[in-house]
């Protein structure tokens, strides 16, 4: 059994089930979180929103707690993130990103605004003007068919634990390399090369390197 499945078994969220991204709905077959998010964006459907909220809000809260937010603050910010999801869902394009990816960016921006209190120049991939020599038009099909999620899960699992941990912490803690160096007492160069080695290793995973050419 892979770590990925282990993680899933610990997950008691009723909506999640064994297949994390598909909600079982006997009437209409499988409904994905992408479908739900698209439905929220196009039709302002509250039931779809509630399903998304039940699945994602507790994860966003967990994400914010890992970033150092207090229990109350994390709860409050997770709610605000979901409110932003509702308000911005109109711009969601399921051919370009998985629901989790899109919601992650909203949660990340919320965290930056609220916890970091520093200027962050953010770029909204949904609303960037197209480039003249567009090399980016290929829709990320794997966002829909889950291939990418599985490849990532697999690649992370195959990393030595310490390296996997470095990559995870990159996403959870908004500390810069310098801040990590100051905190751990490690030379800045060591902090930098460790994370780069971990990332190089991840990119060299056969499935990932094929997917992320």
């Amino acid at each position: 059994m892979t770590m990925y499945e282990n993680e899933k078994n610990k997950d008691t969220d009723a909506a999640a089930g064994l297949h994390p991204r598909r909600m079982s709905d006997s009437a209409s077959g499988d409904v994905s979180y992408e479908d739900l998010l698209y439905d929220v964006g196009q039709n302002k459907d509250k039931d779809s929103f509630i399903a998304l909220f039940n699945y994602f809000a507790p994860r966003i809260k967990s994400f914010l707690l890992k970033g150092g937010a207090s229990e109350t603050k994390a709860d409050e910010l997770a709610q605000e993130t979901m409110l932003n999801v509702w308000n911005k869902a109109k711009g969601y394009d399921p051919t370009k990103a998985a629901a989790s990816t899109w919601i992650f960016t909203i949660a990340r921006n919320k965290r930056i605004d609220a916890l970091r209190k520093k200027k962050y120049y953010s770029v909204d991939l949904d609303n960037l003007p197209e480039l003249e020599d567009e090399t980016d038009t290929s829709p990320i099909q794997n966002a829909i068919d889950n291939e990418e999620t599985h490849a990532i899960a697999h690649a992370i699992h195959n990393l030595p634990a310490e390296q996997a941990d470095l990559i995870k912490r990159s996403y959870f803690e908004e500390k810069t390399h310098q801040e990590i160096a100051d905190e751990t007492g490690l030379p800045l160069g060591t902090v930098k090369s460790r994370i780069r080695i971990a990332l190089k290793r991840l990119r060299q995973d056969p499935t990932i390197s094929e997917l992320w050419t």
């Binding site: 507790p58 966003i60 809260k61 990103a97 992650f104 949660a107 999620t149």
Partner: peptide, 21 residues
């Protein structure tokens, strides 16, 4: 960037054990 945001989406969905709201 999309790829690294997907990695973030993966982290959110699979590495953040749900905490009750």
């Amino acid at each position: 960037l999309r790829q690294y945001e997907s990695l973030g989406g993966y982290m959110l969905e699979n590495e953040c054990a749900p905490v009750s709201m």
